[in-house]
Structure formats: C-alpha cells, structure tokens
C-alpha cells in the first residue's frame, strides 16, 4: 500500500536535521523524504501516478520561501490524489490565530516546534506512534 515514508517540508536545515535524528532513534524508523520548499514537496507528491508511493504522513513547516506550508496544505487537500494524506503543520508559532488558520486549511494536526531537542524526540515518538503505527491499521481510502 503506502510506503513506510514521512514527507517533511522544511526549509530550515537545522530543524530538518533534528527531525531526521529524532526519527532515526525510533525502532524501525520510517524513511524521511525531506523537501526544502513547498513547491518541491508538491511536485514530489503529485508527480507520480503510483498511489502506493505516497508517504503515510506529511509534516509541513509554515514559513517557507515560495509556496508556504498553508498553501501547500490547501493544494494537498484539494487534490483528489492526495486529499486523504494526513498532514501535520509544524511551526514555532503558538499564536491561536495561526493554529486556527491551519485547521481551517484542512490540517489534521498542529504541533508547536519544541524548543529543546529532548522534547522534539518525545514529540516525534508520539507522531510515529499515533500517525504511523495506529493509522496503519485503518484503510486510508474512503
């Protein structure tokens, strides 16, 4: 079905590297597909016909040059091929209006980027448990 992959759209190399490192500490970690911009991520998701090549989860940063996280989210959610892909917005903002906007655009979750590496590791662990392991049991199609 779906590849054991997570897509990460993140322009900040440091944040991406932390995410990668936090992920790699998990048991049987999924493969991380890192896109450095919204456009790159969108092309990656829609550029292949094989639905089974889609990742299990997309994690998007909001602030990115070019297509930002929320625009990318809207595109994913309005595209037949990708609309069922779970998308988590990850941002350093904890402003209520930012969070509300993300959910308005169709996000499946909103996570505030932890400020400490330790916390990030815990969070990535939870994401993995909830979105990858748990969701694997249910069909993603309608």
């Amino acid at each position: 079905m779906y590849a054991n992959k997570i897509l990460l759209a993140e322009d900040d190399t440091t944040d991406a590297e932390f995410f990668q490192r936090a992920l790699s500490r998990l048991d049987s970690p999924p493969e991380l597909v890192w896109c450095k911009s919204g456009t790159e991520a969108y092309l990656g998701l829609t550029g292949q016909d094989d639905a089974s090549a889609l990742p299990r989860l997309a994690i998007l940063d909001i602030k990115m040059p070019g297509m930002n996280g929320l625009e990318l989210l809207e595109k994913i959610k309005s595209d037949e091929r990708t609309k069922n892909l779970p998308v988590i917005i990850m941002s350093s903002s904890d402003e209520p209006q930012d969070i509300a906007r993300a959910y308005d655009c169709g996000a499946n979750g909103y996570l505030v980027k932890p400020n400490r590496f330790q916390d990030l590791r815990d969070l990535v662990g939870s994401i993995h448990t909830f979105w990858i392991k748990t969701n694997r049991l249910k069909p993603l199609h309608d």
């Binding site: 440091t14 944040d15 490192r21 350093s92 903002s93 980027k113 400020n115 400490r116 590496f117 990030l120």
Partner: peptide, 17 residues
C-alpha cells in the same frame, strides 16, 4: 521572536546531540 527561535533550537539541539 519567531525567527530567533530557529537558530536557538539549533544551539540547544546540537549541544544536546
């Protein structure tokens, strides 16, 4: 404030690693 946070995470994170 938001932009400052990213490098800060870097400092803390790499120190941790």
């Amino acid at each position: 404030s938001h932009d400052l946070r990213a490098p800060l995470r870097g400092i803390d994170g790499f120190a941790e690693i």
